[in-house]
Simulated assay, not measured.
Amino acid sequence: MQTTSERSSNGILGSLGSFLRKCVFQILSVGPIPRHVAFIMGGNRRYARKQNLSETASYTAGFLALMSILKYCYELGIQYVTLYAFSIDNFKRLPHEVKHVMDLMQEKLQAMLKKQSILHSYGIRVRFLGDLKLLNDPLRLLAEEAMTATAKNSKMVLLICVAYTSTNEILRAVHGCCREKMEENPEDPMIVKVGDLERHMDTAMIPEPDILIRTSGETRLSNFLLWQTTYCYLYSPSVLWPEISLRHLVWGILNFQRLHPNLEQQKKKKLN
């Protein structure tokens, strides 16, 4: 149990940390703040081996890191945060590993829906992207419940990619386009334009990511948002996901601000 002096000291340190964070965010706000930041949360299992922890403990640490990152993004005014939570390819792992991750996601969703603290106090809307029919029924129903419960929140959108790969998203979008064209006029040649395809993507009506952060030093996209990251700044800090901190987010945004004029110029060339 903490003593009164220890609680007082922690309170002072917390207030000082909050003050310093606000100062850093004020400096960052002089430059362009990204609207959309995406994360590939790499390194949870390596963190478990490094710290001699169970995978359960490492994923719990990763979840706490995620809550901190969401808080920082909210305070910075970032409107969209996308997470690569579980790839379709991950279903090829050992059955007990897949079950463990599914159970953990279900547990965290239940906790968020029960407390609804971070979601509603921060005004976060949750959306799940991916081939959700691949999920087990309890997790899929919880995902649908979370989307319904937060549908009116508008301060930030949290996009969780689960049972997702970019190639699967594109394939489903093509199928959706073909069905739509057939319903409109089955006699006409089936011509699919880029705009048609984008309307059927999971990310329709969502701005493309400005920054994609992949922890653990990996520089692969791993079949994540391939269509949407053409003009996105890619940042690959060597830190493992449970170790990610404010300084990594700040450094990523500073680099984005430095490169922003060139990225915008490339986007304009695309439009022209």
Rank of each mutant, 00 (worst) to 15 (best):
P138T: 15
P186S: 06
A65I: 05
H175M: 15
S5A: 15
V126T: 04
A85Q: 08
N153L: 04
A163V: 03
L254S: 06
K193E: 00
K155G: 11
P138Q: 14
N272M: 10
R127E: 01
A57E: 14
A173D: 01
E183P: 01
T82Y: 04
N52W: 02
V24C: 10
R49C: 12
L234I: 05
D131S: 06
A65M: 07
L254G: 06
M190R: 15
R7I: 11
I160D: 01
P261G: 07
I244K: 11
H260M: 09
E97W: 03
K115C: 06
T148E: 11
S68N: 11
I213C: 11
L142S: 07
W227A: 02
K268E: 04
K269L: 14
A61R: 15
K268W: 01
I170Y: 00
R35Y: 09
R258S: 11
K108M: 06
R46Y: 03
P95F: 15
S238E: 13
R21I: 09
Y122Q: 13
T219Y: 12
N262I: 08
L20P: 13
I160P: 00
N223E: 11
T82G: 09
T82S: 13
A204Q: 12
T60Q: 10
Y122I: 02
N10T: 12
P242K: 12
H248Y: 05
